[in-house]
Structure formats: C-alpha cells, structure tokens
C-alpha cells in the first residue's frame, strides 16, 4: 500500500470536490481518462468494489468454516450428504462458470464499442444467473421433500444458510445485471463508461468464485467421505 505518489503537476491542484458516489459515470475506466484524479490513480468505485469483495471473503469464510467445523457430526438417522446429486450440481456449477464467460464477453464487447455484443452478453449472463437460481430452487425443494431442511440437523442448517446466502448474492447480481441490460437497451452505455459493467462484473465473478469453493468444499468433499465413496 505504500504508493507514495506526489502528484504536483499542473492541473492537479484543484480537483473536483466530492468524488460523489455516482460519479462512476465521470470517472470511466481508468483507461479512459481521469477527470477526477485520485491519489493512487485507481478509480474510487473500483477500489470500493474490491474492498467490498475482500470483506465478503470473511463473510463466506465464516459460513464455510461453520459448515466444515461441524462436518461429519451428523446425528445418526438424519439426512446428510448422501442426498447430494453431484452430476446435477456440477451442471449448475458450470452454468455459473459460463455466466462468468458471458460477463467478460459483455465487457469486452463494450470496450470494443460493440453495443450489440454488450446487450446480448449482459442478457445471457443475467439469464444464466436465473437458470442457476431455478436450479437451486429445484434442488432445495427436492431436499425439502427428502426431509433434508435447515431445521433437521446441523448439516442442514449450515448447508442451507451457506448456499442460501450465495443464492441471495446471485439474486442481487441478477437484478443488477438486468438493470444494466435495460439501461443499455434504453440509453446505451458509452465505452468510456465501461466501469459500470466492469464493477458489476467484479461482483458477478466473485459470486462465481465463491461457488467454485462451495462446490468443492460443501458438495464434493463431504460426498466423497460418505460410506461407499461416490454412490
């Protein structure tokens, strides 16, 4: 963090006040010019997003720790990891991975000045997010009818809180992306405002990355430990 930069060149002495929350539209990507100089040269909103993501690491870290701390202590005769449908979940996992791809393609499209690419891929990303949520709804309801629910045992509590928290993050992301998509349909997003898409992308990829961890730690590892291996 020791980025000791003394900006004392001309024109730097009277920066605009405020650097207000929404002047995301003034800043643009730091590739595209800095109307508002910052001490590090990094955009405020981008620093905010990365700081938020850093903080979220601890949020999901605590949830995953909760799950793993008591993993393997299921009460006898209550449902557990044997209910996991790994092929089904791995499809879900890939839906989310692919939505990350469409997200970067949306950003690349915008940066190349291609509004059509931007709109298509924004929509595809949001749609894949919805597919993931639908899959999660189906999975949850299946578990519910198989007597695996958050009030059944500790495993259920920590599983549903963790995956539910992740699902809530996906939901927020889908709303955000749909808003961006509608905005791009109505007004278009100028390439120099690509930060709008980049920031939502950072959030979206982070949610995807969390699922990578959940898929391995919550699904695969406990499933591999149950009696008889992968059956």
């Amino acid at each position: 963090m020791a980025r000791a930069i003394a900006h004392d060149e001309q024109g730097r002495l009277l920066p605009q006040a405020g650097h207000g929350d929404s002047d995301i539209h003034d800043h643009g990507h730091d590739d595209h010019g800095g109307e508002h100089p910052t001490s590090t040269g990094l955009n405020n909103v981008k620093v905010l997003m990365w700081t938020f993501i850093a903080s979220e690491c601890l949020l999901f870290g605590s949830l995953i720790s909760t799950y793993l701390a008591v993993e393997g202590r299921t009460i006898p005769n209550t449902p557990g990891p044997e209910l996991f449908d790994i092929p089904y979940t791995s499809v879900s996992a890939f839906v989310l991975l692919f939505s990350s791809l469409s997200m970067v393609l949306a950003l690349a499209g915008l940066q190349a000045g291609d509004q059509r690419q931007l709109r298509i891929w924004l929509f595809v990303t949001a749609a894949l997010g919805l597919v993931f949520l639908g899959g999660q709804y189906y999975e949850f309801s299946t578990f519910y009818f198989e007597e695996f629910w958050l009030d059944k045992n500790f495993l259920g509590s920590s599983f549903f809180l963790l995956t539910g928290f992740h699902g809530a993050h996906v939901t927020v992301g889908v709303i955000w992306l749909l808003a961006l998509w509608l905005y791009s349909l109505r007004y278009g997003i100028a390439p120099e405002k690509s930060l709008l898409v980049e920031i939502s992308g950072l959030y979206w990829h982070f949610v995807d990355v969390v699922w990578i961890v959940i898929f391995a730690v919550v699904y695969l590892i406990p499933y591999s430990r149950i009696e008889g291996g992968g059956h």
Binding site: R3, H7, G34, L42
Partner: peptide, 9 residues
C-alpha cells in the same frame, strides 16, 4: 496522455 491519474501507476 501522460497526465491522467493512472499514469504514474
């Protein structure tokens, strides 16, 4: 241009 804020970085 050299004077945009990311220039130093």
């Amino acid at each position: 241009s050299r004077d945009y804020p990311g220039a130093d970085a």
